[in-house]
Structures are given as C-alpha cells and as structure tokens.
Design a protein around this nucleic acid. Structure first.
Length: 348
DNA sequence: TAGACGTGGGT
DNA sequence: TACCCAAGTCT
C-alpha cells in the first residue's frame, strides 16, 4: 500500500491538527453510552472496564449496562459484597479492577463527600486509577484539559511522528505524554481526546491502517505505518497442565473457592489436584485456555468418592447441583463443568 | 521495573 | 489452530 509521506508533523501546526481532528470526529464520532453522559462515575466505570479490554466485549456482552443498573452510583457500589460485585464482573477478567472500583467509590464518599473531584492529582490518588484513567475522567467527564495516552494514542503518535523507538520504554513513554500534552486542544479536551483515540481505532488501527482517508494524513511522516508502533519483545508463553477432579456426590459437586491474594480471588473452580494423585483416573473433559503468560490445558478427571483425591481441603465445599451455576466461576471452569455434568447426566 | 493480572475478538 | 493483543495499573 502506498501512503503519502508528509513533510511536516502535527506540532508544526497544532491548531490545524486540532481542527482537522475535531471536524472529522464531529462527522464520524461513534455514539457510545459513556459519551452520552458527563457523570464522572459512569465515565470511570467505562474506563476501568475498557482497560485492556475491547469495546466489543464491554458493550456487546452487556457488562457496562448491567453494572450501572446494579450499581448506579458510588453510594450503591461502596457497600457491595464481593459475591455480587464479582458476579457482575464475571467473564470480564482482571477482577482486581472491580474491587478497586469499589475502593474508589468508598474513597470518593469518605474523602470527597460523594462527588468525584475535577482534579487530576485527586483522581490519581484513587485506587485503580492511573495516569490514563485520571486523564480520561478529567477530559471525558469534566471536559477539562488533561492529556491521555493509551494504546491507540501511542500508535497514532508513533506513526504521525514516525518514531520507531519501542513505546513501552520510559523515554518513549515520556515523549508520548509530552506530545499528547502539547497537541491537546485545551478548548475542547473531551472531543480532542475522544477523536485521537477513535482515530487509532478506525483509520490508524493496528496492522494495516487506512491512510488514504485519514483526516490527518497531511501531517503523518511515517512511510511504513504497519511497522509501527514498535514494542519490546514480550515474554514467552509457557505451556502448563492442570489436573482437576470431578467429584460428585448425591445432588452436589465439590468446588474450590480461590483464596486471598491469589489469582481469581473469591471465585469458584473445579478442585485442582497434583498430577500424580489423579492422572490415572479417566479424563472426562479436556480444554485449553490462556491466563496471563500461561497456556493451560485443563484435564478434568472422573474421581469417585472414596478415592484418595476426593477428600476436601481448605476452601473446598460441596455445592448443590441446582446452585453451582449462580456462583462466580471462571469461563474455562464453567464450560468444563457444563460439559462434564452434561455427559454424566446422559450416562445416568 | 519487569512481571502479574483474564478473557475473547480478529486474523 | 495459533498467535496477537486490547480505552492499564499495581507492586
């Protein structure tokens, strides 16, 4: 694909850049629910859900709407119990986000009388709110000038300025934030930041971008947009096996609640055993799933009551068959449970 | 500061 | 199928 290569960069004519972006966004900006509100709480919920999570997931699977229906404001979120909170977040991943959102709601009640502060440092001091999210709430909710740099903005800026330095390094991060601050339209921060991100999501998308109709192609210096941004090499994926026991008793199945400080804290899983304990038992189900840097193969073994591995240990409980589906369970375990229970029903 | 933290959509 | 990685933050 041939792409025009500009001789100037956006900082050569910041005013022109802002106008081009604003006009493009005025015609093409998408209509997301969080763009229809200036309620900082609702904006924060959307931003936290969207951390490392695609819009299609948050919107398409109803997480955003469901969460706001159940927790419409800080006063309803602050006292939420873990179970109900996690149930609303189930399937979204990065469950710590949900707890930190609740901690932020509590902090807003305690420190700010229930109203979000329109102040970058005060927002930054709230749990789970980093530089990006603080800037997003400032600009999207309050329409106050604060730069933001997320994956979209980093890609757009790296291409506009033809910067091949890895974006996940300290110096490049510094440059990205400084450049975002320099370019920011201080008269229209909400529209500017929305537009910059949306440009990265539409025309300036990852992989092969659509440069021919890009509204700011006249100040984009890269010759090979598809090669940008550069990222530091990521760590290798590690293959691991998990051996879980399907232990069933009259009307109940043994499940294990994940403990404090660990992965997926408070959620329920099939009880995992040492491979040696149950490897010899028949495999009822096999499933692959990814978590962080691991590629996990989950084996579910049929473990009869009375087998040495069927004894319950810390955090494990018998859950009635008509109740397990209401628990908060990771998707892989839920799918495995459905498959295994379905099979054994047929056998029975 | 590098690694942990989840899941699913896109290719 | 396999791989990439997304509106990041915390420790």
């Amino acid at each position: 694909m041939l792409k025009p290569v500009a001789r100037q960069v956006p900082t050569d004519d910041p005013a022109g850049f802002r106008v081009a972006l604003r006009e493009w966004f005025g015609r093409n900006g998408k209509d997301y629910p969080w763009r229809r509100t200036s309620d900082p709480y609702a904006v924060l919920v959307s931003e936290v859900m969207l951390q490392q999570t695609q819009i299609a997931t948050v919107l398409g699977r109803g997480f955003y709407t469901r969460f706001l229906e159940r927790f419409p404001d800080v006063a309803t979120l602050a006292p939420a119990e873990d179970d109900i909170l996690l149930k609303t977040w189930e399937g979204l991943g990065y469950y710590r986000r949900a707890r930190m959102l609740r901690e932020s709601a509590r902090a807003v009640l305690e420190r700010h009388g229930g109203s979000f502060p329109a102040d970058l440092d005060a927002l930054l001091a709230l749990p789970g709110i980093g530089r990006y999210t603080a800037g997003a709430v400032m600009s999207f909710a309050f329409d106050r000038p604060a730069p933001i740099v997320d994956g979209n903005v980093a890609r757009v800026l790296a291409r506009l300025f033809d910067r091949a330095d890895p974006i996940d390094t300290t110096p490049m991060q510094k440059w990205l934030w400084e450049t975002a601050a320099t370019l920011l339209d201080r008269e229209h921060p909400r529209v500017f930041n929305s537009a910059l991100m949306e440009l990265g999501q539409t025309h300036c998308r990852p992989g092969v971008p659509d440069c021919l109709s890009c509204p700011v192609a006249t100040c984009c210096s890269t010759r090979e947009p598809a090669a940008l941004p550069v990222k530091a090499k990521k760590q290798a994926i590690e293959e691991i096996d998990e051996h879980a026991a399907f232990i069933r008793r009259e009307g109940a199945v043994l499940l294990s609640r994940q403990g404090r400080g660990g992965r997926r804290e408070g959620m329920w899983r099939l009880p995992v055993r040492e491979k040696g304990e149950i490897a010899a038992l028949p495999v009822l189900h096999r499933r692959k799933y990814g978590i962080t840097r691991y590629r996990v193969t989950l084996y579910v073994h049929d473990c009869p009551e009375g087998h040495p591995a069927s004894g319950t240990s810390e955090g494990e409980e018998w859950i009635a068959l008509d109740r397990w589906a209401d628990l908060v369970i990771p998707p892989a375990d839920r799918a495995a449970l459905i498959a295994v229970l379905g099979e054994t029903e047929e056998i029975a």
